[in-house]
């Protein structure tokens, strides 16, 4: 029986992923900031086959509570099989440009809170000597672009942090997975018109499930974003700075 810990459990991508594991009778510990919604997700997973679901309410930027909560989770689950960190917020780039306060908040949600959780969890998993540590980063972290470089920079921080962690934890047998979705039709992106590059959360969830099973290091979801970002990353600054990216 697998024990799965999810931060940002109310995210559309996280819910779709959790359902795939629930179908195989996993045990969950779910963390999110809205209690009613968290309960709705927990109830859903129980009907879909989860063995047990425990929950805790947490605003991710409440760093002081991270150590105690992780301690509580360990008390309850014993050991952890899979950790998925999914919470995030798509910064309003224009608002960030006007206000450092907004920029700081976006960094806290998308980067610092994740790094805080990873700091505590990495030590635990290293001790355990097995398990998967997976985080949803983004293709946006692959290159700074005028349309969303605050969000992109925060995701880039997470990606690089994970890279280092993977290197450090390799010898302890812990699997470290960086997930880079492209454009996903979820509540976060509700305000954008959707074209042919967009994907449903269920499709991304299948990719995450598979990447965990196959112990991948980094996945682009869907896979074609690997090519798209390859091209975008290859653009020299002298060219890209003149483009409207």
């Amino acid at each position: 029986m697998r024990r799965i810990l999810i931060f940002g459990a109310t995210s559309a991508i996280a819910q779709a992923t959790a359902r795939l594991f629930a179908a195989h009778g996993a045990t969950f510990f779910l963390v999110a900031r809205h209690g009613d919604r968290l309960q709705a997700v927990a109830d859903d997973l129980l009907v879909r086959g989860a063995a047990q679901v425990a929950t805790a309410i947490l605003d991710a930027s409440d760093y002081d509570r991270h150590p105690a909560l992780i301690e509580e989770i360990y008390q309850r689950l014993g050991e952890l099989g899979i950790v998925l960190i999914a919470h995030g917020s798509l910064a309003d780039q224009k608002a960030c440009e006007r206000s450092f306060e907004v920029t700081r908040r976006e960094f806290e949600t998308n980067a610092l809170s994740v790094i805080s959780l990873l700091t505590h969890l990495a030590n635990r998993l290293e001790q355990q000597g097995h398990g998967t540590l997976s985080v949803i980063s983004s293709v946006a972290g692959d290159r700074g672009r005028q349309s969303n470089y605050v969000y992109g920079a925060a995701k880039a921080a997470v990606t690089t942090f994970m890279e280092g962690l993977r290197n450090r934890l390799y010898k302890s047998g812990v699997h470290v997975l960086t997930i880079k979705p492209g454009l996903v039709d979820s509540p976060m992106t509700a305000r954008f018109p959707k074209g042919f590059l967009w994907t449903r959360p269920e499709v991304v969830a299948r990719g995450i499930h598979q990447a965990i099973e196959k112990r991948k290091d980094v996945v682009y979801l869907p896979w074609f974003w690997y090519l798209v970002m390859g091209v975008i990353r290859a653009l020299p600054e002298a060219v890209s700075k003149k483009m409207r990216l």
Partner: peptide, 25 residues
């Protein structure tokens, strides 16, 4: 990902605005 707001008979064809409901609360 074309939008899905068509009736099954594909008639009438009206442009149609939509908002997704995600939570019952």
């Amino acid at each position: 990902m074309p939008h899905r707001y068509h009736p099954w008979g594909r008639y009438p064809r009206w442009p149609q605005a939509a908002v997704r409901l995600n939570w019952r609360d």
